[in-house]
Design a protein around this nucleic acid. Structure first.
Length: 580
RNA sequence: GCGGGUGUAGCUCAAUGGUAGAGCGCCUGCUUCCCAAGCAGGACACGAGGGUUCGAUUCCCUUCACCCGCUCCA
């Protein structure tokens, strides 16, 4: 597209874009009239078109125009086993704890565990912080720790389950608290909140009867017993054996933990998860897809759709939200060929982003460092975009090895290997070769794609009005195929038969399947400006000459230049421009 | 979740312990022959809940949401 090389360096661009999105019907905040819902957004009429266009372009490029890629559209809810096998259920259900003094939040399983018995000294970053924290502790826990520079001392680990305060000069603790054996990583503080499960996944009971009723009834019954642990063991039997979650909770002696485990146990059979990524369905249905479509590696399965994650922090408008949309493809190939396919898809994917961008220099690859790689990947590249707040991820292209298929084969007991009858197993030399394909996964954020192309398209140009005063023209230089409205049809004035002529043109456009809008309100300049702001690439204007010579002007959004074309060619001309 | 900031019309902003005003936009009519023209009318707001007060948009508390920083990811 024709544009200057340098992107506008406007630090308010996010603010302005968010305002434009609301004003012009691209993106609204969810449930706005009720005060809004955190990190949830609704796509308005133009935003819905834009997102749809973007996703259609992806599907066309990744599925429709490729012989070796097929698409699926899987259910968002799947058996919980899927998420256990994929590692999402365990890997993201880490217990989180807050330090009651420093407010730091950390993972309990990774926290430091001081030797017992022994002193527990709090090391602050500086003297000022030490003073503040000492005051907090005095106020909340009623003890005055001894302060020496940035170190607070006086707390002592007494046993694996108890710590206390031993004032200077004393030998016995004057006050004690129960303890879980670890302290906060930053300052080494034992005053902590209870462990809370932070789960990545959205959980919902599947079924007409709400299992909370069962939870309430069982809890009421169990807590009426004098010995909770014994009551649980009696009620659940084998399900409360020592190696189960329930059994471990009983062993801990913590009532809250036990009741939590009871609730989990009672609801377990009804609970399902909303998928945190679309990828797993493509692994789980790998065999069905391969067999029904008579495919053999190398081939890909693609899918677009919503995924759900409880993010620790949501931020930057639609950049990170709990409900988001993905465009993912799992490309299954022979082990050993993953490197070359990685190169292939890297290039293909970057070319795709560049195709719609005004500023290709704002896209780049960022290779993952070894220690940054997910456990399932042997290589990973992020496609990053330079957002106003810095570089951020847009797509991840991961070499996932055979990790996922392997995990699902093991968990389900289903043989997911491909049987290659033509080639011998390179290890044994025997035919057929049974192997689990390796996977290259280009996983793009559709929601992020919408944001990045809106940012890429957002332009402000200063020009002089008819009086010579500078005015700002806001233009969304969206790629014509992404633009929500392709053409506006405008009578120069709304009289003398011009509207009627314009109506004929818009009807022809709509009939041809081109998204177009008729507009006769306000002056012609205002209508141009309005359509520039929503990214309409072409305006067709009917003037008095049109009635005589059968021609109209076709105005280009980016250059504002006009050419005169016959009305009879209008539809065809617009369609041709969209195919470029 | 924690710290800091913000919340007044569709948008951008103002004023005020005594019941809110402008610009732009929007709607109606007239006018208007190509890049946010003019005239005349019109509609629309104190994020929500509670407290103090004779009276709160203003002061206090709570809550919700957003923005900027700490963690994670498509």
């Amino acid at each position: 597209m024709s544009s200057p090389a340098a992107a506008p360096a406007n630090h308010d661009v996010m603010k302005k874009l968010v305002a434009l999105c609301k004003n012009r019907g691209f993106v609204f905040q969810s449930s706005e009239i009720y005060g809004g819902l955190k990190s949830a957004y609704d796509y308005g009429p133009l935003g819905a078109e834009l997102k749809r266009n973007l996703m259609s372009e992806w599907w066309r490029d990744m599925v429709t125009t490729r012989e070796n890629v097929v698409g699926i559209d899987a259910s968002i809810i799947m058996r919980p086993e899927v998420w256990r096998a994929s590692g999402h259920a365990a890997g993201f259900a880490d217990p989180l704890v807050d330090c009651q003094v420093s407010k730091e939040r950390f993972r309990a399983d990774k926290a430091p565990r001081p030797t017992v018995p022994g002193p527990l000294s709090l090391t602050c970053t500086d003297k000022g912080q030490a003073k503040t924290y000492a005051e907090i502790i005095e106020k909340n826990f009623g003890i005055a720790l001894e302060r020496d520079g940035n170190v607070l001392s006086g707390l002592v680990a007494l046993s694996a389950t108890e710590f206390g305060f031993v004032p200077k000069g004393e030998t016995a603790p004057t006050k004690t608290w129960p303890w879980r054996g670890y302290v906060s990583p930053l300052i080494g503080c034992p005053f902590l909140t209870a462990e809370k499960q932070f789960n990545l996944m959205f959980r919902t009971p599947l079924g007409a009867v709400d299992p909370m009723q069962d939870v309430a009834e069982v809890t009421a019954k169990l807590t009426a017993e004098p010995d909770l642990a014994a009551a649980i063991t009696a009620h659940f039997g084998k399900a409360a054996a020592a190696d189960t979650t329930l059994g471990k909770a009983i062993a801990s002696g913590d009532r809250a933990k036990m009741l939590r485990a009871v609730a989990e146990q009672v609801t377990a059979s009804a609970m399902v998860y909303l998928r945190p990524e679309t990828a797993q369905a493509m692994f789980v249905q790998f065999k069905n897809v391969m067999n029904s479509m008579s495919l053999k590696p190398p081939f890909g399965i693609a899918q677009m759709g919503k995924s759900f994650r409880n993010e620790v922090t949501v931020e930057h408008f639609i950049f990170r939200s709990c409900e988001f949309e993905q465009m993912e493809m799992e490309f299954f190939c022979e082990p050993g060929t993953q490197g070359q396919w990685m190169d292939f898809w890297k290039e293909a994917r970057m070319a795709w982003w560049h195709r719609y961008a005004n500023y290709p220099q704002k896209f780049k690859f960022r290779p993952h460092e070894k220690d940054e790689l997910a456990h399932y990947a042997d290589q990973c590249f992020d496609v990053e975009y330079e957002y106003p707040w810095g570089w951020g991820e847009l797509e991840g292209i991961a070499s996932r090895t055979d990790h996922d298929l392997h995990a699902h084969m093991e968990a389900s007991g289903e043989d997911l290997r491909f049987i290659d009858t033509e080639n011998a197993d390179p290890k044994t030399g025997a035919k057929p070769w049974r192997y689990l394909p390796y996977v290259i996964e280009p996983a793009a954020g559709a929601t992020r794609g919408v944001l990045c192309f809106l940012l890429d398209a957002y332009h402000e140009e200063t020009r002089l009005d008819h009086e010579g005063k500078p005015t700002t023209r806001t233009v969304l230089k969206l790629h014509p195929r992404l633009a929500p409205i392709k053409a506006a049809v405008l009578p120069l004035v709304k009289k003398d038969g011009l509207p009627e002529k314009a109506r004929e043109i818009i009807e022809a456009l709509l009939k041809a399947g081109v998204s177009a809008k008729y507009d006769e309100k306000n002056s012609i300049g205002k209508r141009y400006a309005k359509h520039d702001e929503i990214g309409t690439p072409y305006c067709i204007t009917v003037d008095y000459d049109s009635l005589q010579d059968g021609q109209v002007t076709l105005r280009d959004r980016d250059t504002t230049e006009q050419v005169r074309i016959p009305i009879a060619q209008a539809v065809q001309q617009i369609r041709e421009r969209l195919e470029r």
